[in-house]
């Protein structure tokens, strides 16, 4: 990766943090637990990297690590989104 590309990635990272701060400060305290479990599920986005490693062909150290990473990330993703949905279903107003 050249320096320019690296710099662009840092740009995106910094700007996304600002977007995150703006969005999260508007989440009311009553939804802080679902926010946590939901954002948790989003951090399972590393599944993308895990898929690329695990599908690279013959069984090497890299693919084995990738398969375990898929299991971990999918637990995070599926568990996170499902449990958040379960919670949010319960939030009702009169």
């Amino acid at each position: 990766m050249n320096e320019f590309l690296f710099l662009m990635l840092i740009y995106v990272f910094v700007l996304a943090i600002f977007v995150g701060f703006e969005l999260i400060t508007k989440v009311p305290p009553t939804l802080h637990t679902p926010l946590m479990s939901g954002s948790n599920a989003i951090s399972g986005i590393t599944i993308v990297g895990a898929l690329l490693s695990a599908g690279a062909g013959e069984l090497t150290i890299s693919t084995i690590l990738g398969i375990v990473a898929i299991v971990f990330a999918m637990i995070n993703v599926v568990g996170g989104f499902l449990v958040t949905d379960r919670m949010l279903k319960m939030f009702k107003k009169k």
Binding site: V12, F13, A16, I17, V19, G20, I24, L35, I42, V48
Partner: peptide, 14 residues
């Protein structure tokens, strides 16, 4: 991958 960076940054900020 920008998508991972964005998603991760959102969660980090949260």
């Amino acid at each position: 991958n920008n998508m991972l960076i964005i998603a991760g940054a959102l969660v980090g900020a949260s």
